[in-house]
Simulated assay, not measured.
Amino acid sequence: MLRRETGVFYLLLLAFLALVARLAFIQLAMGPQLAAAALAEVSRAVPLEDITRGDILDRRLRPLTGSYQEQRIVVFPDLLAHPALDAAVLAPLVGKSPGLLAGQLAGPPHRLPYTVDLTVERVVSDLGERGLIVATVTFRNGPGALAVHLTGYLGPPQDRAEAAGVLPGGPDLVGLSGLEAYYNQVLADHAARRSAREYVDAQGRPTGIVEVDATDRDPARRNLVLTIDAGVQRTVEEIMDQYVPKGAVVVLDAATGDVLAAASRPTFDPRRLASYLGSGAAGNVFVDRATALFPPGSVFKVVVAAAALDEGLVTPDSTFYDRGAAATPIPDWYKPGFGLIDFAHAFAE
């Protein structure tokens, strides 16, 4: 009898522990996704980010993608009491016709594609519409982007493997080059950190409650921190823009080996990828000359020359005949060739 009771006790204990483990898994691992799904059932959200994705930061946690913020009007059309009047008032302030703006005040909740200032924000407030708010929107890629060859760029999935990297509910964008591609699964995210949200009842009818919320409910998002120093990188790129139309510069910390800057020219703007396609420039601007494989050329001849002198194979006065482009196996950069030339002058050339 005692043995049977002991067996039942341990069986119940195992069942209890399994239940605790399952509840812990739901709470800790699935909790954020379930909470987001529950919130989506009772609200309609407008992301206050153009791309819901982790940041690529320098060693001082400064964004390298040139992210910036703008004030935008967020519209919840089903809460607008006087959309035609709203369009007539706002149209001259954003430089559009009332008819065009009236069309943009319809449809599902969304952001208007116009940057607004404090004057427009006050006008929106004076309209008294619960369906119109002004909110700060974060744009991930901006004009101040640095190390674009290193960080890479985004685009739509180009095959099934890349499509698998698009998270459900996230933007249909994946990393196609550089660190954006290599760490795509790390940087990708389900939800925006900030959203403008309209709450609805169980039947999906608007309650009239609108708020801007900030959340870290999705633990999938991660930032990527590099050894790059944005200040050093910016200085290198500014100098290259003036004096180095084609080439690469890499700056290392001699004590640690950290890469402080890595720049390549010509360069590209990650926001305008389509403008390079078909222009004949695509093959050049997307090449990262800081990491691409090229013959070492004169950079390595210091090593070869030092070894030859050290072994006594040549002296500074040793002579050679340079055939230029006809030389084999490695042709000279100077196609006509220098003819008869001594070691010292050959090294200088």
Rank of each mutant, 00 (worst) to 15 (best):
E121W: 03
D58N: 09
P270D: 04
R3V: 11
V174Y: 00
S298G: 15
A248F: 00
V74P: 00
F300D: 06
A230V: 10
H82I: 01
L176I: 05
L100T: 12
G128N: 10
E238T: 08
R194A: 12
N284L: 15
I239C: 03
A84Y: 03
R122F: 02
M1H: 10
P92T: 15
F338K: 13
A254H: 07
H149W: 01
R62I: 08
D216A: 07
L14Q: 06
D50I: 08
T227A: 11
D216H: 01
D189W: 00
P316S: 14
L252D: 06
G155E: 07
S67E: 15
V8P: 01
V186W: 11
Y10S: 05
R72Y: 14
G66S: 14
L61R: 12
V94D: 13
I209P: 00
V302K: 08
V285Q: 04
P245Q: 09
A161Y: 02
G107H: 15
T138C: 05
A84H: 12
S298V: 12
L100C: 07
I341L: 15
G107Y: 13
Y153D: 00
P77S: 11
D229Y: 03
A263I: 07
D126W: 13
A145E: 02
V225I: 10
V303H: 09
L146I: 09
G278H: 04
V137P: 10
V137I: 08
R130W: 12
R111K: 13
Q27I: 02
V251G: 06
G155P: 00
A214M: 01
D55S: 15
L28V: 11
G142C: 05
G128Y: 08
A21I: 03
G247Y: 10
A214H: 04
V8E: 11
L48C: 01
M1S: 15
A15S: 10
A262T: 02
Y199V: 03
L93W: 06
F25K: 07
R160S: 11
P171F: 06
L176S: 00
A191L: 10
F338D: 03
P47F: 09
P63I: 13
I209G: 02
Y182G: 00
T227Q: 03
S264G: 10
D50V: 12
R323P: 03
I330F: 10
Y68C: 12
A325C: 08
R59Y: 11
E180T: 00
R4G: 02
A192R: 00
D253C: 02
R289E: 04
V134Y: 02
L252G: 01
P245C: 13
A24Q: 02
G31T: 06
V244P: 02
T136N: 13
G283L: 09
L154R: 01
D253E: 06
A274I: 11
E238L: 09
E121P: 01
G128S: 05
Y243A: 12
R205G: 04
M1K: 10
Q242K: 15
R323Y: 13
V74L: 04
P63Q: 11
L79E: 08
R194Q: 11
V20D: 14
V244T: 13
A281D: 14
Y243E: 13
D218H: 02
A145I: 03
Y183F: 15
V302R: 12
G169P: 04
N223V: 04
V259A: 04
G95V: 10
V186F: 09
A36T: 15
L167D: 08
L64V: 14
V285N: 04
G131C: 14
L23E: 07
I239D: 06
L11V: 05
L13T: 13
L132W: 04
F9M: 07
A327R: 05
V94T: 12
L2E: 10
